[in-house]
Design a protein around this nucleic acid. Structure first.
Lengths: 342, 342
DNA sequence: CCCGGTCTCGCAACCGGTTCCAGCACCACG
DNA sequence: CGTGGTGCTGGAACCGGTTGCGAGACCGGG
């Protein structure tokens, strides 16, 4: 309600000095600064951020674009971003990217562009070249999480590598009959994550010289129920049953563990299972997995854009940086047991 | 980059007409409107929302405050809110409420107040009276989700009623030895959800005249692993084992089902389990539960604030509205089976 | 005592739209 | 042909801050 002018009048100074006193930047006499602070305090004054950003051109606000909110990876990244932004004094404006192309382009050309944001973080969205252009035209720092995008800085885990790591672990234990339960290739996430993980799995099998016919089962959803269904149908016939499963993500792995137990198959002695993510439920299931920390990726992304905004030369290199992953061995994997001993 | 003035010049009209033509509100001749539109299009012009909101006082932006992002209920509500807001042409600024009181008050007095938002939606946060005052001082519509708050409009399910419904279902099946696994009363969510659900459970037991000594087991976390641990310790001793469990939420119920299966207890013949929420995993586990639809609650909240913002008399009544819940019977509950037949 | 430098501080011009108000053209009607 | 009304348009005053520039005060050194 109260404006800077009122504060200034009450403190007996001009708007200019009041502004300088409050922002703390320039030289203002201690006495004046004191009076302004007092006046502001008992008027309950707060700056109008709109007015401020109109003149400065900076909004202290960054936009985050993501296709999902209620999925583990995305929610986790979001929390990381949010925490880091608040810390740095920025607000977070959230845009969910709709799947329909028309809605999507509306988001880009209408919402995103209203000069509202000082920077952009895209999580799990693969920008089309035209969209990259639009963002570059904003002349604001931007970073992507979840996959490489030519033209803007991105960070992601190496999905192929993650699946390869998981698969190699099983191979090193002595498994030879291994199946991959992953995301449906026709209902792919951005960055073709499902294909990449499948490729990593197959790469590891090939490099070990293992045959792998009928090696892939798509899960209807990239989640626990999807993994459950796929594992149920895979494991139903004891003769074709593999000795180990590489899951496309931990949720699928958990679904598979649940299915196996339902069928009376003991994990890991009857079936080894390895996932990717290190989901909060994984420890409870003793799931061996390849860990990534989405929250840290979000924080890192914020660090980068904040630095780009505060440093004089705003530019962010358009490189892609690789997030490290680690294998976490728990109790869902072991060497294959000869069938008589199961 | 391009300003309204440029568009106006290019179209050969004044800023005033250009503004009117673009906003579409007032009378502008079709010819002029046409020329302005063309000029705007090939200049790639978009309004500066900061400039617009400086003069109109409206930001087309609503603030959402929530303590969690990566929990099912909260993420689900958030998705509902986001979808409804985009639909209505509003942006969403997300604030995560930090647990530390000092950070929390900082959020309220510093961030929230910068005249950035036209309305506020609080999900799962119990506002202190002082905080309600702060929000009311903003003179912006506000609604809460997840519990009643005196002074502002809220919507929530009746937690006691939900637990009572779940418990009555078990009692009607003939169960008499029932235990509640719920959230830790010392690590309570806002609105004392854990206590309320416990109270509903106990109310139903009392009204049926059932004894219920040692009737409550707190879960270390209000999630699957918490339910798993609590159920494990509860079910370990066959002699004290109940015939049915009322879980504080579906995730706890799922943890309990998993624990039961691990112990060789068949659900439901050996143990009936009922949850609250209707989580996406619940169907897979055949979990009988009390359904609530958090996404719809979010949408409803947005409808209300949007209406309050567009209608002439802005006020929102400070009533608390009750979200309906329904019992969804699946396969995790049945009549207790005499022990010989298990 | 004079002069140059450093601190403070106020004036006023922005930032980029929206909207009140007045003016003008044009039409229909008396 | 005069007059009142209607529809469209432009000028200009905002909205609420920030900041460049210049003026005055004050200090120390020569």
């Amino acid at each position: 309600m109260s404006s800077l002018a009122e504060v200034a009048r009450r403190a007996g100074v001009s708007k200019a000095t009041a502004s300088r006193a409050l922002s703390g930047a320039a030289h203002v006499s201690p006495a004046a600064k004191e009076r302004v602070a007092a006046a502001a305090a008992d008027l309950g004054y707060v700056v109008s951020s709109t007015a401020a950003s109109l003149v400065t051109g900076r909004t202290k606000n960054v936009g985050v674009i993501t296709p999902f909110i209620n999925r583990w990876f995305f929610a986790e990244v979001l929390e990381g971003i949010e925490g880091a932004l608040i810390q740095a004094g920025y607000d977070l404006t959230l845009f969910r990217l709709p799947p329909e192309p028309e809605q999507r382009s509306r988001l880009f050309r209408y919402f995103l562009v209203r000069k509202r944001v000082d920077a952009i973080v895209c999580v799990g969205v693969e920008l089309a070249p035209g969209e990259v252009e639009l963002i570059q035209a904003l002349r604001r720092p931007a970073v992507g999480i979840g996959g490489a995008i030519p033209g803007i800085m991105t960070m992601c885990i190496d999905d192929e590598q993650a699946a390869r790591l998981a698969t190699r672990h099983l191979i090193s234990l002595g498994h030879t009959r291994i199946v991959h339960i992953g995301g449906d290739l026709d209902a792919q996430l951005d960055f073709k994550v499902h294909s990449r993980r499948l490729a990593g799995f197959r790469g590891a099998m090939d490099e070990a010289g293992l045959e792998h016919p009928d090696d892939f089962r798509p899960a209807r959803t990239f989640s626990v129920p999807g993994g459950y269904e796929a594992a149920m149908s895979l494991l139903a016939d004891p003769r074709s049953r593999p000795t180990a499963i590489v899951a496309g993500c931990d949720e699928i792995a958990i679904g598979a563990i649940t299915a196996a137990r339902q069928l009376g198959i003991v994990v890991p002695s009857g079936l080894s299972i390895v996932g990717i993510d290190d989901h909060p439920y994984s420890e409870m299931f003793g799931l061996t997995t390849v860990r990534q920390r989405p929250g840290e990726q979000g924080e890192l992304a914020v660090d980068l854009v904040v630095r780009a905004m505060t440093e004089v030369d705003g530019g962010l290199p358009s490189t892609s940086i690789d997030i490290p992953i680690t294998l976490v061995v728990r109790t869902s994997t072991t060497a294959p047991v000869p069938s008589l001993l199961r």
